[in-house]
Simulated assay, not measured.
Amino acid sequence: MTFENLKPKVTEITSNSTISREEKLLKICELLSSSIDYYNWVGFYFAHPETQTLHLGPYVGAETDHTVIPFGKGICGQVAVSNTNFVVPDVAAQDNYIACSFTVKSEIVVPLFVNGENIGQIDIDSHVLDPFTEADERFLEFVNEEIAKLY
């Protein structure tokens, strides 16, 4: 399914008034994971500025021990500080990478802004080397813009 075909499905989920915000986030994870073959782990981390940590939210994929990540550590922690997208074509070549699984080959993290504040991020791991393009970045920015409306 193309990103353009997925956009209305994302909006349909975020607009659904009968389910909670957490359920909406999980449904978005499920949609992305099942619709894009190289999205092997899809999840959200949310910032706790007072402790300078990210906390795992809804996700789909293999279990992870990384439920709390300090700002600055790993790809997610770096995005919490930089406020910019981070695409890692090959995690083996990345110095500040927190290994989740030997099957993960690449990662993309896109920050989630609400009223100009980085409140978290969407994190996607792939078992494929270098699959993420600018189209993935633009689509995930769209996803986060839709999610921001929930806050």
Results as ranks from 00 to 15, higher is better:
22 E>L: 15
59 Y>Q: 08
73 K>G: 00
40 N>V: 02
77 G>W: 01
134 E>M: 09
107 E>P: 15
67 T>G: 02
100 C>L: 12
115 N>P: 03
96 N>D: 09
27 K>V: 05
107 E>Y: 08
41 W>P: 03
140 L>G: 02
134 E>S: 09
129 L>D: 11
121 Q>I: 01
29 C>S: 13
129 L>P: 14
112 L>I: 14
62 A>C: 06
121 Q>Y: 00
112 L>S: 10
98 I>Y: 01
68 V>H: 01
104 V>T: 08
91 V>K: 00
54 L>Q: 13
91 V>H: 04
112 L>G: 07
139 F>I: 11
47 A>P: 10
92 A>P: 06
111 P>K: 04
107 E>I: 11
22 E>F: 13
137 E>K: 14
60 V>F: 04
43 G>M: 08
100 C>Q: 08
45 Y>C: 03
6 L>C: 12
141 E>Q: 14
119 I>W: 02
18 T>V: 11
99 A>I: 07
141 E>K: 15
4 E>L: 14
31 L>P: 01
101 S>D: 13
122 I>G: 05
139 F>M: 09
52 Q>I: 08
16 N>E: 10
72 G>V: 06
77 G>H: 00
85 N>L: 03
38 Y>H: 10
83 N>V: 04
5 N>L: 15
25 L>C: 07
96 N>P: 12
81 V>P: 10
12 E>Y: 11
68 V>E: 10
7 K>P: 01
103 T>W: 01
139 F>D: 04
45 Y>D: 05
129 L>N: 12
129 L>Q: 12
69 I>A: 01
63 E>Q: 11
4 E>K: 14
54 L>I: 10
118 N>F: 07
122 I>A: 01
77 G>K: 00
58 P>L: 02
46 F>G: 06
84 T>M: 07
14 T>A: 07
100 C>F: 03
19 I>V: 15
6 L>M: 13
44 F>I: 05
45 Y>W: 00
104 V>L: 01
115 N>C: 10
136 D>L: 07
83 N>Y: 11
15 S>L: 15
